[in-house]
């Protein structure tokens, strides 16, 4: 059912996307949702959160998680998504 992860086929890997491109992506996505980071201080280590740290975290996330998940190839006839896996297994015993 599951195939082993394979190298990405994309011409540009997430590692090659620049910080500026990622920042534009994040800010556009958040703007479309109506989420405003500008209420945070720009750069203040003493603040609970600031724009610099939030954007750095977002860039790390985008450079790792989506691609890692996309690289895990699954057979279309493999498992349908189930958001409660343990319940599925218990309900399908026998």
């Amino acid at each position: 059912m599951a195939r082993r992860p394979t190298p990405p086929r994309s011409v540009t890997s997430s590692q090659e996307v620049t910080d500026e491109q990622l920042d534009a992506h994040v800010r556009t996505r958040l703007a479309l949702l109506g989420v405003d980071l500008s209420v945070l201080p720009a750069d203040d280590e003493e603040a609970p959160a600031d724009q610099r740290r939030i954007m750095a975290s977002a860039r790390r996330f985008l450079r790792s998680t989506p691609e890692a998940i996309a690289d895990f190839e699954l057979d279309p006839m493999g498992p349908a998504p189930a958001i409660y896996p343990a319940e599925v297994s218990a309900r399908n015993r026998g």
Partner: peptide, 30 residues
């Protein structure tokens, strides 16, 4: 407050990857 970052990151995972991740959990469980 101090735990904002993962909430923002959660807004950045596309639905296709969320669905694939959900399917992958079934692989892991099995």
């Amino acid at each position: 407050g101090v735990s904002l970052a993962p909430w923002i990151n959660g807004l950045l995972l596309p639905a296709a990857e969320y669905v694939r991740g959900s399917r992958a959990r079934l692989v892991l469980l099995r």
